[in-house]
Simulated assay, not measured.
Amino acid sequence: MAASIGVIDYGMGNLHSLGKALERVSGASRVIVSYDTEVLKHCDRLVLPGVGGVRECMNELRRLELNQLVAEAAREKPMLGICLGMQVMLEWSDENGGVPALGLFPGKVVRFPDPAPDARGERLKVPHMGWNRVHQSRPHPLWEGVPDEAWFYFVHSYHASPANSAHVLGTAEYGHAFAAAIARDNIAAFQFHPEKSQSTGMTLLGNFAHWSP
């Protein structure tokens, strides 16, 4: 039977474009978009996507008992978080007065500060939205074929602040440097949207589809 990639559907995110992108790069793998824990637990690797807020995400994951699935799968199979899916992999988010998250990585999620005007009286806008370069902090199989300082597409007001700098896989600059990608063992996560990042994003997804940590 062909290997399978499970995309976790908890009702928050554009799963159609992500599913189609994974189908394009995964070769013989089957891509299964589902909220059914019994279906997802039999997938060979999992993707946790998402857009929106951490509180709503955690509420839906708990309601569907997907938080338990993620915690168990994180111990044994390749897993990828994307955008909000990256943020909920940390221990805590400052959003909505503070929200506990999945705790797969030590650290928290913080909001971009509202910066002071520059010399021209202009401010960086929050949310951070659009294309930005990502500096690769260390080598990793997911970076194979991806140039350092490649452009990726971001949409977010909060960003991850990992407690362990060794977990940072890539950084970007928006007012200050922030973690744009993190990884440990069999888990990786991107703040940007690889499915919206043209050929470089497709290369990353293809690397994940064939990653054997």
Score class of each variant (00 low, 15 high):
M1Q: 03
A3Q: 14
A3H: 04
I5A: 04
V7M: 10
I8L: 12
S17Y: 00
S17G: 03
K20S: 04
E23Q: 13
E23V: 07
V31K: 03
V33T: 13
S34C: 12
Y35K: 14
D36N: 14
V39R: 11
C43Y: 00
D44V: 04
D44N: 15
L46N: 05
L48W: 09
G50R: 05
V51A: 05
V54W: 04
E56D: 09
N59Y: 00
E60S: 15
E60D: 13
R63A: 13
R63E: 09
E65W: 04
L66Q: 13
Q68C: 01
E72R: 14
A73T: 00
A74S: 15
A74D: 07
K77I: 14
M79F: 08
L80Q: 06
G81S: 03
I82T: 02
C83M: 02
Q87K: 00
Q87G: 07
V88A: 05
E91R: 03
E91G: 06
D94C: 06
E95H: 04
V99I: 13
V99T: 15
P100W: 06
G103V: 11
G103Q: 09
L104N: 05
F105Q: 09
P106D: 05
G107L: 01
K108C: 12
K108T: 05
V110G: 01
F112P: 08
P113M: 08
D114G: 01
D114N: 11
D114K: 14
P117D: 07
P117F: 12
D118N: 15
R120S: 15
P127E: 00
G130N: 10
G130K: 07
W131E: 07
R133L: 13
H135A: 13
H135L: 10
E144M: 01
G145D: 12
A150T: 07
F152D: 07
Y153M: 14
Y153F: 14
F154T: 11
F154G: 05
V155N: 10
V155L: 14
V155C: 08
A160N: 02
A172D: 05
Y174P: 03
G175E: 13
F178V: 08
A179T: 08
A180E: 10
I182T: 06
I182R: 03
R184M: 10
I187H: 08
A188G: 14
A189G: 14
E195P: 09
K196F: 10
K196P: 10
S197Q: 08
S197M: 11
S197F: 06
G201R: 00
M202A: 15
M202W: 08
T203D: 00
G206P: 00
F208C: 07
